[in-house]
Amino acid sequence: MSKHVGAGGGLRADALGRFDSVVMAVAGCGPAYTIAVTLPALIAAVGVAGPAVLLYCAIPMVGIALAFRHLGRLDPNAGAAYAWVGRSLHPFLGFLSGWAVVVSTTVFMASSALPAGSATLALLGLDTSGSTLLPTAIGALWFLLVAGVVMFGARISAHAQTLITGAQLVLLVVFAVAAMAKDGNAADFSLSWFGFSHFGSEHTFVGGALIAVFAYWGWDVTSNLGEETRGGRRGSGFGGVIGVLMVFALFTVFTISVNILIGTDAVRRAPGDFLTVLGDAIWPGWGGRLLVLAVLLSTVATLNTSLIQATRTLFAMGRDHT
């Protein structure tokens, strides 16, 4: 693999600032989407010990983000892991790393079309339980819209992400604050939720950790944008570290809110509807629908970052004639 020269090769240097990098990292993790899809699985696996799993998985994740930041300072590259693994270990391992990113993002983009369409129809008050054709078609339209935005370059994508992710974060923060201000119906807050006393034969840390690692996936898109980030070597990877810390705070607050307001048994009984139940417990009437809106915004934002990560990785591999 030949080392690329500068930040050229078709990429626009200085298209993104540090703030844009943070936005991309948060959007890549898809906090609202992850809360809706991953939190029920995490609670089913570890019960009230969800905050402990999120905390102890966040520590190595921050370490990985710091390592990516250091690699990005040494060599800003649109291929990120593909390029760094190939040059430090072996070109073939870099090739596999690149294709692993492309395959995983492609699978996610295909699988998230249905939830995006279902969330859109749910906001309109339409029942989608009997068919998958209409939600899939609407999800495909969302994907085409996102692809059109990405085609205009990183600068336009960053503006769109700021609007979408900003609206999502406002909704989530408002609900998080409201949840912390309400009296608990299911349980009282306990620091033991951050310890290991709740793990045993039924709830294992390893099972929860596998789910939590997936929850943090996506922040690394900032590494693929290193060549397009203002400041180059100095600014590369900064957003990933901040993004991991921000989503950790959101995931933890919502997990604690579930333990306090509705309880883990309610999530196990209806994992698909738990966000609506939690939203109504926080804000009766409109709460559930607003959280569904946050999930829709999160899904669209994550589609954007997934497409960016796949295209930048493929661009770097093509530039190296791989």
Rank of each mutant, 00 (worst) to 15 (best):
G94Q: 07
L89M: 12
T105P: 00
A83M: 03
S97E: 15
V102Y: 02
L71A: 09
A80E: 12
G86V: 08
W99R: 11
G72Q: 07
R73D: 11
V102K: 10
P76T: 03
A81T: 11
S88N: 07
G86N: 11
P76R: 03
V102D: 00
R87N: 12
L71R: 04
L89R: 02
V102I: 14
G98N: 11
V85S: 12
G79P: 13
A100R: 04
A100F: 04
T105G: 01
H90M: 08
D75K: 03
A100T: 13
F92T: 14
W84A: 00
V101H: 03
A110C: 12
S111Q: 04
W99M: 09
N77Q: 14
V102W: 06
L74A: 08
L93Q: 01
F92I: 14
L89E: 02
H90E: 10
M109A: 06
H70Y: 11
A80Q: 07
A80G: 05
Y82D: 08
V101Q: 14
S104C: 12
V103T: 09
Y82C: 09
A78D: 09
G94H: 08
L71H: 06
V107S: 13
V107Y: 05
W84P: 00
S88T: 03
M109I: 06
R87D: 13
F108Q: 00
R73K: 14
V107D: 07
G98W: 04
L93E: 00
L96R: 03
V103D: 03
S88M: 10
V85C: 11
H90Y: 09
N77K: 02
T106V: 10
S97T: 15
D75G: 01
N77F: 01
N77T: 06
M109N: 12
A83E: 07
G94V: 04
A81W: 03
P91D: 12
G79V: 08
L74E: 14
G72P: 04
W99V: 01
S111V: 02
A80F: 02
M109R: 01
L96D: 06
V85R: 07
S112P: 01
R73L: 02
F95I: 08
V101R: 09
V107W: 07
S112Q: 09
V101T: 14
L89F: 14
V107F: 13
T106H: 06
D75V: 04
H70R: 15
G94S: 12
L96Q: 14
A78E: 08
L89A: 13
V103H: 03
L74D: 08
L71C: 11
A110K: 03
H90I: 05
V101P: 04
R73I: 01
G79M: 11
P76A: 04
G72S: 08
T106D: 06
S104L: 10
R73A: 15
L93V: 01
F108Y: 05
P76S: 05
V107T: 13
D75E: 15
W99N: 09
L89N: 03
H70L: 13
S97G: 14
L71I: 01
L71N: 08
S104G: 13
A78H: 02
P91T: 09
F92Y: 15
G72I: 01
P76L: 05
M109H: 00
D75L: 15
P76G: 04
V85I: 15
V85Q: 07
A83P: 02
S111T: 07
H90W: 13
F92K: 13
S112E: 07
W84G: 00
T105E: 02
A100D: 13
V85Y: 11
F108W: 00
T106A: 15
D75N: 11
S88R: 05
V85D: 07
